[in-house]
């Protein structure tokens, strides 16, 4: 029985690259309401690495499985989700694109409608990440250069998300935009800021969403940095890590250049020069 249906849109980015903002505009576009969607109700595009999702759709407790076993099963849980859903599905992703040890892809092409890959100047990611995790710029650069970087990957502890391998920043970008073979639409965070209407429109059209210009404009207005920030002050944000003071911090581009020391910039460029040049982040 062939039940294949290409209906999952993966909203992918390295952390702190604008994924939440993108999902907020998406939520406002799809809800098409008279008021902004609450930032605590972005459940329409939950994270793909949810442990709860895996356990339900696999029929086993992921906490009793090794990382390798989980990677062997993940793709099938996404297929199950796809089969039982009419219409488009959206999932947030921070993982690198990769194959499991049997050579099978974890984000299966046969149920993928589109990949929206959000890329941001890595110098700015450093600033955002450092503020958001109370760590130094140097620590964040070390992390962005680390080919073994991952989230929720400590072995002696249970996280509410599955392990997510990130690789280093360049590997992450390359994996999705060059290696995956999936239909990928690349969105630059800086373009979302400079010309939101055009950039969001192209991304949503690529995802197969039906909408008109008035709906899009309203969704963007409802997701302005000021509105998101007000919403967070009023009712908190459940996706904020506990150590982070405020999730929506500044929402601008270019701070990396101003705040990072030349040494830190060199450390980052040493590893990511090629990919940064490709996307116009160094000249």
């Amino acid at each position: 029985m062939n039940r294949s249906k290409r209906n999952i849109v993966w909203i992918v980015s390295y952390p702190k690259s604008g994924n939440t903002w993108f999902r907020t505009v998406l939520a406002n576009l799809l809800s098409d309401g008279d008021n902004p969607v609450d930032i605590n109700e972005l459940d329409l595009s939950p994270i793909a690495s949810s442990r709860l999702h895996f356990d339900e759709y696999s029929g086993v407790s992921s906490s009793d499985l090794s990382f390798e076993e989980i990677e062997g099963i993940q793709a099938e849980t996404y297929r199950e989700l796809s089969y039982e859903t009419e219409g488009l599905l959206f999932r947030k992703v921070h993982d690198i694109w990769k194959r499991n040890k049997d050579g099978r892809e974890i984000f299966p092409a046969d149920v993928t409608k589109a990949v929206i890959y959000i890329i941001r100047n890595p110098l700015d990611i450093v600033i955002s990440y450092a503020f958001h995790s109370n760590r130094s710029f140097e620590e964040i650069v070390a992390q962005m250069n680390d080919i073994d970087m991952g989230l929720c990957n400590k072995p002696g502890k249970l996280f509410n998300q599955l392990k997510q391998e990130l690789g280093n920043w360049s590997m992450h970008v390359k994996s999705w935009t060059e290696d995956s073979g999936l239909p990928v639409h690349i969105v630059k965070y800086e373009d979302l800021l400079n010309d939101p209407e055009k950039s969001f429109r192209k991304a949503f059209q690529f995802s197969g969403i039906q909408f008109n210009p008035v709906q899009l404009q309203k969704a963007i207005e409802f997701s302005s940095f000021e509105k998101l920030s007000e919403n967070e002050i009023r009712s908190g944000f459940k996706e904020k890590p506990i150590k982070m003071e405020k999730f929506f911090r500044s929402g601008v581009a270019g701070q990396g250049k101003e705040l990072l020391s030349p040494e830190v910039v060199i450390q980052l460029k040493e590893i990511h020069q090629e990919m940064m040049r490709k996307f116009g982040y160094v000249t």
Partner: peptide
Amino acid sequence: NEINGKGALY
């Protein structure tokens, strides 16, 4: 022989 529901492993 007959499947009324399924998941990745069941």
